[in-house]
Design a binder for these strands. Structure first.
Lengths: 151, 151
DNA sequence: CGTGAAATATAAATAGA
DNA sequence: TCTATTTATATTTCACG
């Protein structure tokens, strides 16, 4: 899917505030509302925009502990096995298999330290997990999501 | 800020699709549109909802390489110094100071391997950076954002 | 919290460059 | 094929009960 400068501008505006009206978006990029709607529809059909959502403040919701967990698995654990296991825990907000010594990296948001520890224990108890190594987030520096590169 | 069950339901629905109308949300939780609007306004004022945004598909936008970078800094580097430096790079989507041996962890989305390498070099060249250690994402397993725990 | 009405935004069809 | 205009429909918003 090809994106021109106007598409990139629209994406940047929508990442910043997805509630802007088509008319408002159009005024900022030099298009009419319906032209903007056509482009946004096209961006959705094309898969560039995967959805509309709200961003939440973890602290305001009671998520006070954040951390990352490296998973060291027994040989030949299929990714799907890992995915199915970590999916069980709502505290896991992000998970990927990675290169290097560890097999997977999990991003965790927990209610408190006890909650974090509980998730760690439960995941560590999975038969395919040899060991885990975790770090706690001290302070968030940047939280940009997967927005488009500055245009 | 206190949230009742209805607030949590509304948050879960909005995380899944922030474009639902107040009337639709109301029908799902048993409220009228205006009651829903009042609650959503309150959730915004209270800071639980920090914004409305679109989710993008990195691959569809040409971001093909994802990775994590640990930063080892020279002693007594203030977090703000790290933040200011990593903010310069649009490829950094997430950054936090962490416990453990490394001082900070960066989450990177790059156009390609050359782009990833370039960011790594530039950040590694910062005077406060002693060394970096990076891993590449092989395959994403879960991508849940900071949604509310399943209700 | 619910109702109802005015202001606003969206969506679909049509026409023009 | 892309954009602009029009018109019907739906949503948001707000004062009041």
């Amino acid at each position: 899917m090809r994106l021109d400068r106007l598409d990139e501008q629209l994406l940047a505006l929508l990442v910043a505030d997805a509630r802007r009206s088509y008319a408002d978006l159009g005024a900022r990029v030099g298009l009419t509302a319906s032209a903007v709607k056509r482009r946004v529809d096209r961006l959705r059909e094309g898969g560039a925009i995967t959805g509309f959502t709200v961003t939440l403040d973890p602290a305001a919701l009671g998520w006070t502990v954040e951390g990352y967990v490296e998973l060291y698995c027994r040989s030949s654990t299929p990714p799907e096995t890992i995915r199915a296991a970590v999916e069980q825990h709502a505290e896991v907000v992000d998970a990927s298999t990675i290169s290097g010594e560890a097999d997977a990296l999990l991003h965790i948001l927990a209610a408190d330290m006890r909650d974090f520890e509980r998730v760690l224990e439960r995941i560590g108890a999975e038969p395919f997990v040899a060991r885990t190594k975790s770090v706690l987030v001290l302070s968030p520096l940047l939280r940009r999501g997967a927005g488009p590169r500055a245009v």
